[in-house]
Write a protein that binds this DNA or RNA. Sequence first.
DNA 1: AATATTTGATTACACATGTAGTCGCATGTG
DNA 2: CACATGCGACTACATGTGTAATCAAATATT
Lengths: 126, 126
Amino acid sequence: MPKKIPDISEAEWEVMNVLWEKAPQTANEVTSSIQKHTDWKPKTVRTLLDRLAKKQVVGVNTDQRVYTFFPLYTQDECRKAETQSFIKRVYGGALKSMVVQFIQDDTLSEKDIKELRSILDKKQNK
Amino acid sequence: MPKKIPDISEAEWEVMNVLWEKAPQTANEVTSSIQKHTDWKPKTVRTLLDRLAKKQVVGVNTDQRVYTFFPLYTQDECRKAETQSFIKRVYGGALKSMVVQFIQDDTLSEKDIKELRSILDKKQNK
DNA sequence: AATATTTGATTACACATGTAGTCGCATGTG
DNA sequence: CACATGCGACTACATGTGTAATCAAATATT
């Protein structure tokens, strides 16, 4: 089985999302991207990168003078891990319950629903 | 608009789930239920209840000698709040992306998929 | 070369969270 | 009534997280 993925905090997710778009990147590059959505200081971003590296969620190239960082897991892997623990905590493990709630609460648009139906159709006829 | 629901931590969710099943309950009653799933000491449960009360997620009846606790929000309200922030963090806000991933990953059974389809059908014909 | 700047390493600090323990008063018990 | 027990109030303490700042060495600039 794939090794357990460490917890990724909310702020760390922002950083990961940037690294999943493009990697490797220097701390400065990551900071530039991040600052489009947030007002975090470069030092803050650097701390997050260091923590992610320590947690072994990102890797670091130290061969160049200025280090570059890259993800050690795919976005899908991390999403799946987070979602599983989230669903367990909040919905007692039943993804379906969540979807049902969202469908009933009109959180999904007509269009979303159509798309979901089409995805489910494809899946079932496969 | 409904006031913003405070963050509920993982351990606190366990407590809330017990209170949503039946309320009000004394700390002892909650502890008994909780200890079926966990090995938390009564003091731990009490601390969680106190924190939830402080956060105003649970209310406290202090009229009796032994206090009783009860939820101030429904489970649905809390689920919705948590899910919204979760989806935003992990899936960039698109619930659909998550469902798609889970459908494709076979996290949902054939049966689940059938049920979802039927729910979507009902929704659409409404 | 002297100085300014960049960058990695280390440290800071408050608040949240998991996981309890202590203390003192109100109550039940013998 | 004397004492044991239960419960609320407060305290504890390590680790995680958000949000950086400081310091020293390497590098770029003038």
